[in-house]
């Protein structure tokens, strides 16, 4: 039972008609921005995120360069029109924190030691927010890095699992996040079987955590295969002109 007395799950279906373990419709494309070295647009249902990658390039200031590897900079920003009420365009505390979280979700896979004394800049813009923006951001940024040709150990895919009305659900949206009991974003590098992001808001029992994690893994596998198809599609779609 949600806090406002509204039922979010009825006869096994969620408020938007999805099954408990069903992802929102996912669409992705790469190379959407001309000026960036790499870019990607990712949609999880109504959540829409664009990511742009620049570099490796000379760092803006000399003090931030690292002698042994490339420094990765990341900015997560929500457009002022992305939410119901206008969001101030200045970076909020939450956005600064998420920039760090997304950066740390990507740093383990980027082979940054190949390019010392450079910086790789990732800009993430949330166009429309409907829950799961941080996991969509990680997915978009990892696609944009691959599109920029930056060597990386694996692609990263993210998805959030939640507990709503006592049920574990995959890919929570804004409504479920607001009125649910728990929300757990997870990001993984599936080929390496490594977790790069794991957060938990709310309460889950140890058993529920294990189940929720298995659910997240299932979702991530599905998102990962869409990521790979998207990167290949860019080249398979090129038609030979006569």
């Amino acid at each position: 039972m949600g806090k406002v007395g509204m039922k979010l799950i009825e006869s096994g279906l969620r408020h938007d008609g999805r099954k408990l373990d069903e992802l929102r419709p996912i669409s992705m494309s790469v190379g959407v921005l001309k000026n960036a070295n790499g870019s990607a647009l990712v949609e999880y249902g109504r959540t829409k995120v664009i990511a742009a990658v620049y570099g490796p390039r000379e760092p803006q200031t000399r003090y931030m360069l690292l002698p042994n590897r490339a420094v990765i900079r990341c900015r997560y920003h929500m457009a002022s029109f992305s939410t119901h009420d206008r969001k101030s365009p200045t970076l909020s505390r939450r956005e600064i924190e998420l920039s760090k979280v997304v950066r740390e979700a990507l740093e383990p896979v980027v082979l940054s030691e190949l390019y010392p004394r450079t910086s790789i800049d990732i800009f993430i813009e949330v166009i429309n927010a409907d829950g799961g923006t941080r996991t969509a951001s990680v997915t978009a940024a990892s696609l944009a890095l691959a599109d920029a040709g930056i060597p990386m150990k694996d692609l990263v895919a993210g998805v959030a699992v939640g507990k709503v009305d006592g049920f574990l659900v995959l890919d929570v949206d804004e409504l479920e996040d607001m009125y649910g009991e728990a929300d757990m974003p997870v990001a993984m590098a599936p080929s390496l079987r490594q977790i790069t992001l794991l957060q938990l808001n709310g309460v889950l029992t140890p058993d529920e955590f294990t189940q929720a994690f298995e659910l997240a893994k299932k979702g991530i596998e599905a998102i990962y295969s869409v990521e790979r198809e998207t990167l290949k599609k860019k080249y398979l779609d090129v038609k030979v002109e006569d």
Binding site: V109, A146, P151, M152, K153, D154, L155, A189, P190, S191, L192, E227, R228, L231, K232, Y235, L236
Partner: peptide, 8 residues
Amino acid sequence: ELVTPGQI
């Protein structure tokens, strides 16, 4: 063959 990052 067309490969992507992380592909074995």
